[in-house]
Design a protein around this nucleic acid. Structure first.
Length: 388
DNA sequence: AAGCCGGGGAT
DNA sequence: ATCCCAGGCTT
């Protein structure tokens, strides 16, 4: 039995060299599909979006899971579905409400795109999430991966998927060289994924491939001994599993400094709303600027409220600093306390402004670093009041 | 084809 | 600290 599998695997690989678009024989493919499905159905995790027969919920989960880990998504998914239970409710709700339910999850254009997709579904598809990849691709925020996932998982269509997990699994199975995210290797991977997906249970098969990548075929310490398809794996046969995928070097990180200011006036502080097409679009923040070369922190703190909303302030003291990362940028964020001096706050370099009480913050969506910084600022203000 | 977008968990 | 993650959009 063991020996037969080894032979099968070897045969697959000699074939793979000549025809990478269909790297398995029919018999090998069927054996692979059977082994993966059996493993997935036995060992899969229980997750809130699994086995629920609701294409809308599948779409929401897939968008939330883009570049975001399962554990992070779970509470967001549950709150989002409770608040927007149907595609119609999402389409007709205020965008600020949708962004608010996304705060802390990152990649905020996803939230805006998802609502626009819901509106397109209501207007163009009679409120039914499309079944075909082609129609799904016409929705904003839905690319080839998400379209394939919804089509196969929600409707049982034999559409392929290719995500980071599947890239890792497939490059190892067939020793695919080159950058799997672009060019020849990328195209080859899509064709392989297409050749593997079965007519029967394509959704479980696709999710099974991802689950394999998430649980066993992991980046650094793969558990090949527990892998249900290890006999099909060329990289394992060659002891080269961790040589794949061959990802390109990351761009160098850039260090920058931002200054955010809490401007107090009559017990309220100033928030500005980010433009929709910018980073953190639609979220609120303390007026913030990037520190210029040679500029002092205090000068930047004075500049921030003036530049963003035309308010002149007197900068008092720093109240804290924190680090966070945005893609390749490592940002040091400094907080300053300031008093309002003059100027009616208006949306100069932002989408909107608001004067907010400490207790009235809840309705405003903030990014995680801004939320942490603002928490420090309010604590500091409470302390200062105690000493008066 | 390459650059850009956030945040958190794992190592 | 660094890597990586159920990617898609813009240029």
């Amino acid at each position: 039995m063991e020996r037969e599998s080894e032979l099968t695997a070897t045969a697959a690989h000699s074939y793979a060299v000549s025809n990478m678009n269909q790297p398995f024989s029919d018999a090998q493919r069927r054996d692979f599909q059977r082994a993966l499905l059996a493993w997935y159905r036995r060992d899969k995790r229980t997750l809130p979006w699994r086995d629920i027969d609701n294409p809308y919920a599948v779409l929401v989960s897939e968008v939330m899971l883009q570049q975001t880990q399962v554990a992070t998504v779970i509470p967001y998914f549950e709150r989002f579905l409770a608040r927007f239970p149907t595609v119609e409710s999402l389409a007709s709700s205020p965008t600020d409400d949708v962004i608010h339910h996304w705060q802390g999850l990152g990649y905020y254009s996803r939230a805006r795109n998802l609502q626009n997709a819901a509106r397109a579904v209501v207007e163009r598809f009679d409120g039914i999430i499309p079944r075909d990849v082609e129609q799904l691709l016409s929705l904003p925020g839905v690319g080839r991966y998400t379209a394939g996932a919804v089509s196969s998982v929600a409707y049982g269509e034999p559409a392929p998927i290719l995500d980071g997990n599947v890239m890792r699994v497939l490059t190892r199975l067939f020793c695919i060289e080159g950058n799997p995210k672009s060019g020849k290797a990328h195209r080859a991977l899509w064709e392989i994924a297409e050749s593997l997906v079965p007519r029967e249970s394509p959704g479980d098969f696709n999710v099974g491939l991802m689950e394999l990548g998430a649980l066993l075929c992991t980046p650094t310490k793969p558990s090949c001994g527990d892998c249900p398809v290890s006999t099909h794996c060329l990289a394992r046969e060659r002891y080269e599993v961790t040589q794949f995928p061959q990802l390109p070097p990351r761009p160098e990180t850039v260090s920058v400094e931002d200054i955010a200011v809490i401007v107090w006036k009559d017990g309220r502080f100033l928030l500005t709303k980010r433009p929709v097409d910018k980073r953190w679009g639609g979220l609120w923040e303390l007026p913030r600027v990037r520190r210029l070369e040679g500029e002092s922190l205090e000068d930047a703190a004075t500049r921030a409220p003036m530049q963003r909303c035309g308010v002149e302030v007197r900068v008092k003291e720093p109240f804290g600093a924190m680090r966070h990362a945005v893609t390749r940028y490592r940002i040091r964020l400094h907080g300053f306390v300031a008093e309002w001096v003059s100027g009616e706050a208006s949306a100069v370099e932002c989408e909107a402004v608001a004067w907010v009480e400490s207790e009235g913050l809840e309705p405003y969506a903030l990014s995680s670093p801004q939320r942490k910084l603002l928490k420090l600022a309010i604590e500091e203000a409470d302390q200062a009041r105690l000493f008066q």
